[in-house]
Structure formats: C-alpha cells, structure tokens
C-alpha cells in the first residue's frame, strides 16, 4: 500500500532521515521502534506530507505522492495522528471531530464516522460540548485518535499513542488500534511502551540515527539481542 524508497528528510540543513526504505502492505499493522530523537516521527510526517524538505520516493497505491502537501494527502486517505495531539484547544470535542472530517473525501462520511468514533470512544460521546483544553491527557489522546479516524483514512500514521498516558490506559490504546485495523485501516505506528501493540505487528522496523537498522517479523525481532536492548531501553 505504501512503499517508501530511499527517503531523505531535512529540517533546514539538518539531515534527519538517510535513505529510509520501508513497505507497508494493505491491512497491515507495522510498528516502528528506535531510540528517541532518531527520526521515527519524521518518517511518519514525511509520508503524511508534513515535512517540507524530502527526497526519494513515496508510492501510495501505485501513485508517487512524494512532495505532496498534507491537504492533498488527507484527501487521498493518508492521515497523521500526532504524538503531541495537536488538538484545537478552544474548540469543543465535537468541533475538533468535525474538523477531522475537513477533507473533501471525508465530508460525505462525516455522520457515519462520527457514529463509529462514538462507539469506539463512548467517553467522547458524553463530552461532545467540552472544550478540548479542559480534557485530561488520556481523553485528549483519545480525541486525537478519534479526530484522525474522522478523516475516513485508509492509512493511519500514529505517533507514540502512549505518550503522556497513564499505564492503565495503554491496554485501551492497544485495543483501539486493533479495532481500527480490523475495520480495514492500515496502520503504521511508532510505539515502544506498549508490548500489546508490538504483538499486533505484522512487521517491525527499527530506526537508528535516521537509518533502518532492522526489519523483520516480530519473532525475528524478539530473537535479536541488539533489539532487546532497545525494547528494554538500556
């Protein structure tokens, strides 16, 4: 579904990603691991059109989408869910969700997606009128994921969903990602604090110093001593 070939990304003159290649098949959950600050988020953002300076090739369903801006990509069904959530603080939950369905392709599905999202996150349904800025960390995280789902995406890039989350909510996040995937959405997720998510993985990539240092199945990953180091954060 998404094929990334020799991707290089830069922030000003800083070379963040070096010849990154990866492959996400339709309906898969692909997990990306690696130390903090080594460019995992940048991979997701580059695919979703949120990094200005990228070279290489990003192919989505056979179409070269390298260099397209997020407004075009969201419309094609590629959506990024940010680690720091990036909600609209002075808007209600409902308004945040409606803006999630901003793109042309999502508009006709706004109502059904709203229902889906409320079934998935009943707590958000109870708090439709609440301002995003007054929500707890966990609720805001759920809202960020829900807003991403409103875009009617086929491909979701989810960036560290466990960030700022209480440990007891991690199971919940894993359950939701599984549910999203069951509904047919392809997921590329950066997450290493939730073992349950790693268990969902069809494929695992490890990114170190802007380069892919490992790719393989989760069984292969577990058999790799170097990776255990990263899993354990040592």
């Amino acid at each position: 579904m998404i094929k990334v070939h020799d991707l290089n990304a830069y922030y000003d003159d800083f070379h963040v990603l070096k010849n990154v290649s990866l492959n996400v098949g339709k309906g898969e959950v692909v997990v990306m691991l690696g130390p903090n600050g080594h460019g995992k988020s940048t991979v997701l953002k580059s695919i979703c059109g949120l990094v200005e300076k990228v070279t290489g090739n990003i192919i989505y369903d056979g179409e070269n989408i390298t260099g397209l801006g997020s407004e075009k990509l969201v419309n094609k069904g590629i959506t990024y869910i940010a680690e720091n959530r990036e909600l609209f603080p002075e808007m209600t939950v409902l308004e945040n969700l409606k803006l999630g369905a901003y793109s042309q392709s999502a508009r006709p599905h706004e109502r059904e997606n709203l229902e889906k999202v409320f079934t998935l996150f009943p707590r958000l349904a109870d708090r439709q009128k609440q301002l995003a800025s007054t929500m707890s960390g966990g609720e805001a995280r759920m809202l960020a994921i829900a807003r991403g789902l409103m875009s009617n995406a086929d491909f979701l890039a989810i960036d560290e969903p466990s960030l700022g989350l209480q440990p007891n909510l991690r199971d919940e996040v894993a359950r939701i990602i599984k549910e999203i995937n069951t509904q047919g959405i392809t997921v590329l997720v950066v997450e290493q604090n939730i073992p349950q998510i790693t268990e969902l993985a069809d494929k695992i990539y490890v990114l170190e110093e802007g380069m892919i240092s490992f790719q393989g199945s989760k069984e292969e990953a577990l058999g790799n001593d170097h990776l255990k180091e990263i899993f354990l954060g040592m």
Binding site: V74, L87, F88, M91, L99
Partner: peptide
Amino acid sequence: TRTGMSVRAVAQNPAGAQIVGIP
C-alpha cells in the same frame, strides 16, 4: 461554517490545522 471553523483552527493551532488537511 466550514471555512469559519478552519479559520479558528488555524488561529488556535496551525500545526493541527495542517494535520487535518486545512489549506
């Protein structure tokens, strides 16, 4: 209106607006 909401979105969080695909 959708345009009005996108105006508020950009004012409140430009990065968030870009993520949801607001031009």
